[in-house]
Structures are given as structure tokens and as C-alpha cells.
Amino acid sequence: MKEAQPTVKFELSAQDIGYAGHPVLAGVSLTITPGESVAIVGVSGSGKSSLLNTLYQQQPNEVALCPQHSMLVTSLSVYHNIYMGQLQHHSFFYNLANLVKPLKSPWQQVFKLAQLLGLADKIKVSVDKLSGGQQQRTAIARTLYQQKTIFIGDEPFSNIDPVQGVNLLKLIKSRHQTVIVALHNHQMALEHFDRIIAIGAGKIVYDCPSEQLTSQQLLTIYQSSPVHACD
């Protein structure tokens, strides 16, 4: 992952995002290059998920996706949910055998990952018996297990306390070249991301490096008439 040539990974120019005829976001233009860590902020329903999905569709093979409603298979164990990150790397029969009884090599890999995320003791427990935070960590583990270069997460830390959230983000960043995350926690956005894209009122309100922003400025997007915080 070192010395990757910074070529453009995502590019949108004046694109409408959302349902045909009823764009959630209008005229979106942005580029994201490898190596960036981008936080996307905005009020609920402003179109963060739609934007992330549009970005995902551009590079489905290189993106590890962590959707908002983690959509885990709740009747399966933590192990199986994490393993699902690599389903397409194995034959169906290998997967089926692993469903019946976990196979040795994936078990070891998944177990290591689960340890990192504090899920080791829950690895055999079915997901519907976990707390919201544990489920979210399982979803993140599943995403990490995909071992892709780009991470796209839609509020992946919403049920996790801030300290743990930061640790998880560090883990994610250490394993991905590019990280794009939709967030509500502006403190985290300011301190741990290179760049912040704020959306509201159906468009991008601002898109600038985080060091140019103060917490105060960032918060303006939650006001009724958001203002441009930077140029």
C-alpha cells in the first residue's frame, strides 16, 4: 500500500444523486484521491447515505462497505458474519462446509480480527444476542475482513462510545489506503480526518481540509440556514 500513485479514485462532476426526478443532492462535484480520509457530515436525511452509495458504485471491487443498518444476518454467529466479508473468494462448497462447521484457516483469521475488536468472547454467539455496539463492531470486523484498499462506512460508530470509536477508526485507517466515513461526531471528524464534506439543503455546503475548520464553523450545518465555512 506504500507509495501508491495518487490517481483519482472517485470523481463526480455536477451529478444529481438520489431517485430519478427527485434528486436528494443536486449538482455534486468532487474528487477523492487515494490516501485521503474524508468525513461526510450533515443532518439526518440530508443525503449522506446516497452520496456514499454513489461513490461505492464507482469502485465496487475495491471498496469495503459498512452500511448504516449494518444488515448482519442476526441468526448467524459473529464468526459467520465476519467471514461473509470473504464469501466471494471461496467456492460455494467451501463456504457451505464452513457454514456447517467453521474451517480452520478462516477461523484463525477471523479470531484474530475479533480479538482486535474485542469480540473474541462473543465469536460463537449469534448476532441477535449482542448489544447494539457489539453488532456494530461485528459489522466493522466484517468490512475489515474484506481486505480492500478503500473503506466506506455509513455512521459505523454511532452506537460505540467515542474513545472506542477513535480506536476503531485508527484500526480502519491502518488497514485502508482511503477512508470515507459519514459521521455525526464532529469532534472525531475534525480531529481524525483530512477532509470534511458537509452536505445540507440538497447540495454540498462546503468541502475543505479539516484544519481550516473550527468546531463552531462545522456546527453551522446543523442550523436552519447553513453557511459556507470555507471557500
Binding site: 452509495n53 461505492y56 458504485q57 465496487p60 471498496v63 469495503a64 462497505l65 452500511p67 443498518h69 444488515m71 444476518v73 442476526t74 441468526s75 448467524l76 459467520h80 461473509m84 464469501l87 466471494q88 460455494f92 463456504n95 457451505l96 457454514l99
Partner: peptide
């Protein structure tokens, strides 16, 4: 059932996602 965008396909989808979810 709503499915995630990065869902698997074919038999993997059947064995790992749909069958467990419709089990009840």
C-alpha cells in the same frame, strides 16, 4: 428482504444471507 449493496450472489447469497434470515 432489503439487502446490502455489497451482497454476495447466487448460492452464497442463499446459504449465508437469505436462508438464515427467512429461517423463522
Amino acid at each position: 428482504l432489503p439487502l446490502r449493496h455489497d451482497k454476495s450472489s447466487g448460492l452464497n447469497l442463499w446459504a449465508y444471507e437469505l436462508q438464515p434470515r427467512i429461517y423463522p
